[in-house]
Amino acid sequence: MDDLLRLDERLNGDQRLIRDTVKSFVADRVLPHVGDWFEEGTFPARELAPQLGALGLLGMHLEGFGCAGTDATSYGVACRELEAGDSGLRSFVSVQGSLAMFPIWRYGSDEQKQQWLPPMAAGEAIGCFGLTEPDHGSDPANMRTYAKRDGSDWVLNGSKMWITNGSIADVAVVWAQTDDGIRGFVVPTDTPGFTAPEIHKKMSLRASITSSLYFDDVRLPESAALPGVRGLKGPLSCLSEARFGILWGVVGAARACLEAAVEYAQTRVQFGKPIGAFQLTQEKLAWMYVGAAQAGLTALHLGALKDAGELEPRQVSFGKLANVRAALDIARQARSILGGNGITLEYPVIRHMNNLESVLTYEGTQEIHTLVLGEALTGLAAYR
Protein backbone atom coordinates (compact mmCIF):
# COMPACT_ATOMS: atom_id res chain seq x y z
CA MET A 1 0.00 0.00 0.00
CA ASP A 2 1.38 3.41 -1.00
CA ASP A 3 2.52 5.89 1.63
CA LEU A 4 0.63 8.73 -0.02
CA LEU A 5 1.96 11.41 2.32
CA ARG A 6 5.51 9.94 2.18
CA LEU A 7 5.74 10.04 5.96
CA ASP A 8 8.58 7.55 6.22
CA GLU A 9 10.73 9.76 4.01
CA ARG A 10 11.09 11.92 7.10
CA LEU A 11 12.93 9.10 8.89
CA ASN A 12 16.71 9.14 8.83
CA GLY A 13 18.85 6.20 7.74
CA ASP A 14 19.19 4.63 11.19
CA GLN A 15 15.45 4.90 11.80
CA ARG A 16 14.67 3.24 8.46
CA LEU A 17 17.11 0.44 9.26
CA ILE A 18 15.34 -0.15 12.59
CA ARG A 19 11.98 -0.08 10.77
CA ASP A 20 13.10 -2.69 8.26
CA THR A 21 14.82 -4.90 10.85
CA VAL A 22 11.80 -5.00 13.17
CA LYS A 23 9.38 -5.45 10.28
CA SER A 24 11.37 -8.46 9.06
CA PHE A 25 11.48 -9.95 12.55
CA VAL A 26 7.72 -9.59 12.92
CA ALA A 27 7.10 -11.11 9.49
CA ASP A 28 9.37 -14.09 10.16
CA ARG A 29 8.87 -14.80 13.86
CA VAL A 30 5.45 -13.42 14.79
CA LEU A 31 2.91 -13.19 11.98
CA PRO A 32 2.96 -16.90 11.06
CA HIS A 33 2.08 -17.83 14.66
CA VAL A 34 0.31 -14.94 16.37
CA GLY A 35 -3.18 -16.01 15.35
CA ASP A 36 -2.61 -19.33 17.10
CA TRP A 37 -1.10 -17.59 20.15
CA PHE A 38 -4.16 -15.35 20.33
CA GLU A 39 -6.58 -18.25 19.98
CA GLU A 40 -4.72 -20.34 22.58
CA GLY A 41 -4.12 -17.44 24.96
CA THR A 42 -0.34 -17.95 24.99
CA PHE A 43 2.76 -15.86 24.36
CA PRO A 44 6.26 -17.40 24.11
CA ALA A 45 7.96 -14.62 26.07
CA ARG A 46 10.95 -16.66 27.21
CA GLU A 47 11.65 -17.70 23.63
CA LEU A 48 11.21 -14.25 22.10
CA ALA A 49 12.88 -12.13 24.80
CA PRO A 50 16.50 -13.09 23.95
CA GLN A 51 15.76 -12.53 20.25
CA LEU A 52 14.32 -9.09 20.98
CA GLY A 53 17.32 -8.39 23.19
CA ALA A 54 19.73 -9.43 20.44
CA LEU A 55 18.06 -6.90 18.14
CA GLY A 56 18.60 -4.18 20.76
CA LEU A 57 14.89 -3.56 21.26
CA LEU A 58 14.69 -3.94 25.06
CA GLY A 59 15.28 -0.60 26.74
CA MET A 60 16.49 0.60 23.36
CA HIS A 61 16.02 4.30 24.18
CA LEU A 62 18.14 4.08 27.35
CA GLU A 63 21.89 4.73 27.54
CA GLY A 64 24.48 2.31 28.89
CA PHE A 65 24.14 -1.05 30.68
CA GLY A 66 23.83 -2.91 27.39
CA CYS A 67 21.02 -0.71 26.08
CA ALA A 68 21.09 0.50 22.48
CA GLY A 69 20.79 4.22 23.28
CA THR A 70 18.66 5.08 20.24
CA ASP A 71 16.69 8.29 19.82
CA ALA A 72 13.02 8.49 20.74
CA THR A 73 11.75 8.37 17.16
CA SER A 74 13.64 5.11 16.57
CA TYR A 75 11.94 3.65 19.64
CA GLY A 76 8.60 4.84 18.28
CA VAL A 77 9.24 3.31 14.86
CA ALA A 78 10.13 -0.01 16.51
CA CYS A 79 6.89 0.10 18.53
CA ARG A 80 4.93 0.79 15.34
CA GLU A 81 6.36 -2.25 13.58
CA LEU A 82 5.96 -4.47 16.65
CA GLU A 83 2.30 -3.54 17.06
CA ALA A 84 1.67 -4.10 13.37
CA GLY A 85 2.31 -7.69 14.44
CA ASP A 86 0.31 -7.60 17.67
CA SER A 87 -0.37 -5.24 20.56
CA GLY A 88 0.77 -7.97 22.95
CA LEU A 89 4.22 -8.03 21.37
CA ARG A 90 4.60 -4.27 21.61
CA SER A 91 3.26 -4.38 25.18
CA PHE A 92 5.94 -6.86 26.15
CA VAL A 93 8.68 -4.58 24.80
CA SER A 94 7.07 -1.44 26.26
CA VAL A 95 6.70 -2.93 29.72
CA GLN A 96 10.23 -4.31 29.70
CA GLY A 97 11.87 -1.08 28.52
CA SER A 98 9.67 1.82 29.57
CA LEU A 99 7.98 0.53 32.72
CA ALA A 100 10.48 -1.88 34.29
CA MET A 101 13.92 -0.82 33.00
CA PHE A 102 13.29 2.93 32.82
CA PRO A 103 12.57 3.49 36.55
CA ILE A 104 15.64 1.46 37.51
CA TRP A 105 17.71 3.41 34.96
CA ARG A 106 16.34 6.82 35.99
CA TYR A 107 15.80 6.42 39.74
CA GLY A 108 17.73 3.33 40.78
CA SER A 109 20.97 2.93 42.68
CA ASP A 110 24.18 1.92 40.93
CA GLU A 111 23.79 -1.53 42.46
CA GLN A 112 20.22 -1.90 41.13
CA LYS A 113 21.27 -0.75 37.68
CA GLN A 114 24.24 -3.10 37.48
CA GLN A 115 22.23 -6.05 38.78
CA TRP A 116 19.17 -5.74 36.57
CA LEU A 117 19.64 -3.59 33.47
CA PRO A 118 22.20 -5.68 31.52
CA PRO A 119 20.27 -8.97 31.77
CA MET A 120 16.99 -7.17 31.06
CA ALA A 121 18.46 -5.50 27.97
CA ALA A 122 19.62 -8.92 26.77
CA GLY A 123 16.23 -10.52 27.40
CA GLU A 124 17.75 -12.84 29.99
CA ALA A 125 15.61 -11.33 32.77
CA ILE A 126 12.00 -10.17 32.39
CA GLY A 127 10.45 -7.31 34.33
CA CYS A 128 6.97 -6.08 35.18
CA PHE A 129 5.50 -2.87 36.62
CA GLY A 130 3.13 -2.90 39.58
CA LEU A 131 0.97 0.22 39.87
CA THR A 132 -2.69 -0.53 39.04
CA GLU A 133 -4.76 -2.06 41.84
CA PRO A 134 -8.13 -3.85 41.83
CA ASP A 135 -9.87 -0.79 43.31
CA HIS A 136 -7.51 1.98 42.17
CA GLY A 137 -6.79 2.15 38.46
CA SER A 138 -7.12 5.77 37.38
CA ASP A 139 -6.54 7.03 40.93
CA PRO A 140 -3.11 5.69 41.91
CA ALA A 141 -2.64 8.33 44.62
CA ASN A 142 -5.03 6.30 46.78
CA MET A 143 -3.34 2.93 46.25
CA ARG A 144 -3.59 0.55 49.21
CA THR A 145 -0.39 -1.43 48.75
CA TYR A 146 1.78 -0.39 51.67
CA ALA A 147 5.42 -0.78 52.65
CA LYS A 148 6.27 -0.41 56.35
CA ARG A 149 9.69 -0.22 57.89
CA ASP A 150 10.69 -3.05 60.18
CA GLY A 151 14.16 -2.36 61.50
CA SER A 152 16.40 -1.90 58.48
CA ASP A 153 13.95 -3.76 56.21
CA TRP A 154 10.74 -2.95 54.39
CA VAL A 155 7.68 -5.21 54.64
CA LEU A 156 5.36 -5.00 51.63
CA ASN A 157 1.65 -5.93 51.67
CA GLY A 158 -1.09 -5.44 49.10
CA SER A 159 -2.02 -6.38 45.55
CA LYS A 160 -1.81 -5.17 41.97
CA MET A 161 -3.91 -6.13 38.95
CA TRP A 162 -3.69 -6.21 35.13
CA ILE A 163 0.09 -6.58 35.20
CA THR A 164 1.70 -7.49 31.89
CA ASN A 165 4.47 -10.11 32.26
CA GLY A 166 3.63 -10.53 35.95
CA SER A 167 3.65 -14.33 36.22
CA ILE A 168 6.84 -14.76 34.15
CA ALA A 169 8.79 -11.80 35.53
CA ASP A 170 12.11 -12.14 37.33
CA VAL A 171 11.76 -8.68 38.86
CA ALA A 172 8.84 -6.36 39.60
CA VAL A 173 9.04 -2.59 40.02
CA VAL A 174 6.30 -2.06 42.60
CA TRP A 175 4.87 1.25 43.81
CA ALA A 176 3.54 1.43 47.34
CA GLN A 177 2.43 3.86 50.01
CA THR A 178 4.87 4.46 52.85
CA ASP A 179 4.92 6.75 55.85
CA ASP A 180 7.02 9.07 53.68
CA GLY A 181 4.80 9.00 50.60
CA ILE A 182 4.72 6.76 47.54
CA ARG A 183 7.97 4.85 46.92
CA GLY A 184 9.14 2.43 44.26
CA PHE A 185 10.67 -0.95 45.13
CA VAL A 186 12.69 -3.38 43.03
CA VAL A 187 11.26 -6.75 44.03
CA PRO A 188 12.81 -10.05 42.87
CA THR A 189 9.84 -12.29 42.18
CA ASP A 190 11.36 -15.23 44.06
CA THR A 191 11.06 -13.25 47.31
CA PRO A 192 8.93 -15.17 49.87
CA GLY A 193 5.38 -13.84 50.02
CA PHE A 194 5.29 -12.73 46.36
CA THR A 195 2.79 -14.52 44.10
CA ALA A 196 1.60 -13.67 40.58
CA PRO A 197 -1.31 -15.79 39.30
CA GLU A 198 -2.12 -15.34 35.62
CA ILE A 199 -5.45 -13.77 34.59
CA HIS A 200 -7.41 -15.97 32.17
CA LYS A 201 -10.62 -15.72 30.12
CA LYS A 202 -9.50 -12.50 28.40
CA MET A 203 -11.00 -11.62 25.04
CA SER A 204 -8.33 -9.00 24.33
CA LEU A 205 -4.53 -9.08 24.45
CA ARG A 206 -4.72 -12.85 24.44
CA ALA A 207 -1.20 -13.12 22.99
CA SER A 208 0.11 -11.46 26.14
CA ILE A 209 0.63 -12.60 29.72
CA THR A 210 -1.49 -10.66 32.21
CA SER A 211 -1.37 -11.32 35.95
CA SER A 212 -2.27 -10.16 39.41
CA LEU A 213 0.47 -9.51 41.96
CA TYR A 214 0.04 -10.31 45.66
CA PHE A 215 2.40 -9.26 48.45
CA ASP A 216 1.99 -11.08 51.76
CA ASP A 217 4.58 -9.75 54.20
CA VAL A 218 7.19 -9.51 51.45
CA ARG A 219 10.38 -8.58 53.30
CA LEU A 220 12.82 -6.41 51.38
CA PRO A 221 16.15 -4.85 52.34
CA GLU A 222 16.61 -1.09 52.33
CA SER A 223 18.55 -1.50 49.08
CA ALA A 224 15.33 -2.58 47.31
CA ALA A 225 13.86 0.94 47.43
CA LEU A 226 14.44 3.23 44.45
CA PRO A 227 16.47 6.07 45.98
CA GLY A 228 15.96 8.66 43.26
CA VAL A 229 12.27 9.53 43.50
CA ARG A 230 9.33 9.88 45.88
CA GLY A 231 5.68 10.55 45.18
CA LEU A 232 3.55 10.01 42.08
CA LYS A 233 6.19 11.66 39.88
CA GLY A 234 7.97 8.29 39.74
CA PRO A 235 5.24 6.04 38.32
CA LEU A 236 3.71 8.82 36.21
CA SER A 237 7.03 9.51 34.49
CA CYS A 238 7.26 5.81 33.63
CA LEU A 239 3.73 5.87 32.21
CA SER A 240 4.61 8.86 30.07
CA GLU A 241 7.50 6.88 28.58
CA ALA A 242 5.25 3.91 27.86
CA ARG A 243 2.42 6.04 26.47
CA PHE A 244 4.85 7.45 23.92
CA GLY A 245 5.41 3.90 22.69
CA ILE A 246 1.66 3.33 22.57
CA LEU A 247 0.91 6.39 20.44
CA TRP A 248 3.43 5.08 17.92
CA GLY A 249 2.47 1.45 18.26
CA VAL A 250 -1.20 1.84 17.43
CA VAL A 251 -0.23 3.42 14.11
CA GLY A 252 1.13 -0.03 13.22
CA ALA A 253 -2.09 -1.77 14.27
CA ALA A 254 -4.10 0.72 12.21
CA ARG A 255 -1.86 0.18 9.19
CA ALA A 256 -2.20 -3.60 9.45
CA CYS A 257 -6.00 -3.33 9.49
CA LEU A 258 -6.05 -0.86 6.61
CA GLU A 259 -3.74 -3.03 4.49
CA ALA A 260 -5.91 -6.08 5.14
CA ALA A 261 -9.04 -4.13 4.17
CA VAL A 262 -7.49 -2.75 0.96
CA GLU A 263 -6.26 -6.16 -0.16
CA TYR A 264 -9.61 -7.75 0.62
CA ALA A 265 -11.51 -5.00 -1.20
CA GLN A 266 -9.37 -5.57 -4.29
CA THR A 267 -9.96 -9.32 -4.41
CA ARG A 268 -13.42 -9.93 -2.94
CA VAL A 269 -15.91 -10.01 -5.83
CA GLN A 270 -19.62 -9.27 -5.36
CA PHE A 271 -22.19 -8.35 -8.00
CA GLY A 272 -19.60 -9.01 -10.68
CA LYS A 273 -16.78 -6.73 -9.50
CA PRO A 274 -14.39 -6.26 -6.56
CA ILE A 275 -16.08 -4.60 -3.59
CA GLY A 276 -13.32 -1.98 -3.71
CA ALA A 277 -14.92 -0.68 -6.89
CA PHE A 278 -18.04 0.39 -4.97
CA GLN A 279 -18.21 3.97 -3.75
CA LEU A 280 -19.25 3.05 -0.21
CA THR A 281 -16.18 0.86 0.22
CA GLN A 282 -13.86 3.49 -1.23
CA GLU A 283 -15.26 6.10 1.12
CA LYS A 284 -14.54 3.84 4.08
CA LEU A 285 -11.00 3.17 2.87
CA ALA A 286 -10.32 6.85 2.19
CA TRP A 287 -11.35 7.91 5.69
CA MET A 288 -9.42 5.01 7.20
CA TYR A 289 -6.29 6.20 5.40
CA VAL A 290 -6.87 9.79 6.52
CA GLY A 291 -7.11 8.64 10.14
CA ALA A 292 -4.02 6.45 9.87
CA ALA A 293 -1.97 9.18 8.20
CA GLN A 294 -3.02 11.79 10.75
CA ALA A 295 -2.01 9.41 13.55
CA GLY A 296 1.33 8.88 11.83
CA LEU A 297 1.88 12.62 11.57
CA THR A 298 1.08 13.04 15.25
CA ALA A 299 3.57 10.32 16.16
CA LEU A 300 6.31 11.85 14.01
CA HIS A 301 5.77 15.30 15.51
CA LEU A 302 5.76 14.07 19.09
CA GLY A 303 8.84 11.99 18.34
CA ALA A 304 10.63 15.12 17.13
CA LEU A 305 9.58 16.97 20.30
CA LYS A 306 10.85 14.14 22.50
CA ASP A 307 14.16 13.99 20.65
CA ALA A 308 14.50 17.74 21.21
CA GLY A 309 13.79 17.32 24.94
CA GLU A 310 10.59 19.36 24.63
CA LEU A 311 7.82 16.76 24.97
CA GLU A 312 5.29 17.45 27.74
CA PRO A 313 3.03 14.84 29.43
CA ARG A 314 -0.11 16.59 28.18
CA GLN A 315 1.20 16.27 24.61
CA VAL A 316 1.67 12.55 25.20
CA SER A 317 -1.94 12.44 26.43
CA PHE A 318 -3.04 14.07 23.18
CA GLY A 319 -1.17 11.45 21.16
CA LYS A 320 -2.40 8.49 23.19
CA LEU A 321 -6.01 9.67 23.11
CA ALA A 322 -6.12 10.65 19.43
CA ASN A 323 -4.12 7.80 17.97
CA VAL A 324 -5.74 4.95 19.89
CA ARG A 325 -9.20 6.22 19.00
CA ALA A 326 -8.19 6.55 15.34
CA ALA A 327 -6.72 3.04 15.28
CA LEU A 328 -9.81 1.53 16.90
CA ASP A 329 -12.11 3.28 14.43
CA ILE A 330 -9.98 1.98 11.55
CA ALA A 331 -10.07 -1.55 12.91
CA ARG A 332 -13.85 -1.45 13.22
CA GLN A 333 -14.26 -0.16 9.67
CA ALA A 334 -11.89 -2.81 8.38
CA ARG A 335 -13.94 -5.46 10.16
CA SER A 336 -17.03 -4.23 8.32
CA ILE A 337 -15.30 -4.35 4.92
CA LEU A 338 -14.23 -7.94 5.50
CA GLY A 339 -17.77 -8.93 6.42
CA GLY A 340 -17.99 -12.38 7.99
CA ASN A 341 -14.31 -13.02 7.28
CA GLY A 342 -13.54 -10.06 9.51
CA ILE A 343 -14.29 -12.09 12.65
CA THR A 344 -11.88 -14.93 11.86
CA LEU A 345 -8.24 -15.16 12.87
CA GLU A 346 -7.30 -15.93 9.28
CA TYR A 347 -7.15 -12.15 9.00
CA PRO A 348 -5.53 -9.82 11.56
CA VAL A 349 -8.44 -7.40 11.91
CA ILE A 350 -10.54 -8.86 14.75
CA ARG A 351 -7.37 -9.57 16.73
CA HIS A 352 -6.21 -5.96 16.42
CA MET A 353 -9.71 -4.66 17.11
CA ASN A 354 -10.03 -6.64 20.32
CA ASN A 355 -6.52 -5.70 21.41
CA LEU A 356 -7.15 -2.01 20.85
CA GLU A 357 -10.10 -2.15 23.25
CA SER A 358 -7.51 -2.82 25.96
CA VAL A 359 -5.05 -0.26 24.65
CA LEU A 360 -7.84 2.31 24.84
CA THR A 361 -8.07 1.64 28.57
CA TYR A 362 -4.61 0.84 29.88
CA GLU A 363 -1.96 3.39 30.82
CA GLY A 364 -4.61 6.06 31.11
CA THR A 365 -8.21 5.62 29.99
CA GLN A 366 -9.57 7.85 27.26
CA GLU A 367 -11.55 9.66 29.96
CA ILE A 368 -8.41 10.50 31.95
CA HIS A 369 -6.55 11.74 28.88
CA THR A 370 -9.61 13.79 27.92
CA LEU A 371 -9.50 15.46 31.33
CA VAL A 372 -5.76 16.10 30.97
CA LEU A 373 -6.48 18.01 27.77
CA GLY A 374 -9.47 19.74 29.36
CA GLU A 375 -7.27 21.00 32.18
CA ALA A 376 -4.64 22.13 29.68
CA LEU A 377 -7.27 24.16 27.85
CA THR A 378 -9.12 25.66 30.83
CA GLY A 379 -6.64 25.60 33.65
CA LEU A 380 -9.28 23.80 35.73
CA ALA A 381 -8.82 20.26 37.04
CA ALA A 382 -11.94 18.09 36.76
CA TYR A 383 -10.69 14.78 38.13
CA ARG A 384 -12.83 14.88 41.27
Rank of each mutant, 00 (worst) to 15 (best):
T178W: 08
I182T: 15
I182S: 04
I182W: 05
R183L: 08
G184I: 07
F185H: 11
V186H: 11
V187W: 04
V187E: 13
D190L: 12
T191H: 10
G193T: 07
A196P: 00
E198H: 00
E198P: 00
I199A: 02
K202P: 00
M203I: 05
S204K: 07
L205C: 07
L205T: 03
R206I: 05
A207R: 02
A207Y: 00
A207Q: 08
A207E: 11
S208M: 14
T210A: 11
S211A: 15
L213S: 12
L213A: 12
L213E: 04
F215R: 06
D216I: 09
D217K: 15
V218F: 07
V218G: 09
R219G: 04
R219N: 04
L220D: 02
E222D: 15
S223Q: 12
A225F: 00
L226A: 09
L226I: 05
L226W: 01
P227R: 08
P227F: 02
P227S: 03
P227Q: 07
G228C: 02
V229F: 00
R230T: 13
G231P: 00
G231H: 02
G231F: 04
P235C: 11
L236W: 05
S237D: 15
S237T: 14
E241K: 10
A242T: 03
R243D: 06
L247N: 09
L247E: 13
G249F: 02
V250Y: 01
G252Q: 08
A256K: 09
L258E: 07
E259Q: 13
A260T: 05
A260F: 02
V262A: 02
E263Y: 05
Y264K: 05
T267F: 00
V269R: 08
Q270M: 14
F271N: 14
K273R: 15
I275Y: 03
A277C: 10
Q282M: 12
L285T: 02
M288S: 04
V290Q: 14
G291Q: 13
G291K: 15
A292V: 14
A292E: 13
A293N: 12
Q294C: 13
A295Y: 03
L297Y: 04
T298H: 10
T298D: 14
T298C: 15
T298V: 15
A299K: 06
A299H: 02
L302C: 11
L305N: 05
L305A: 14
L305S: 03
K306Q: 14
D307H: 03
A308K: 05
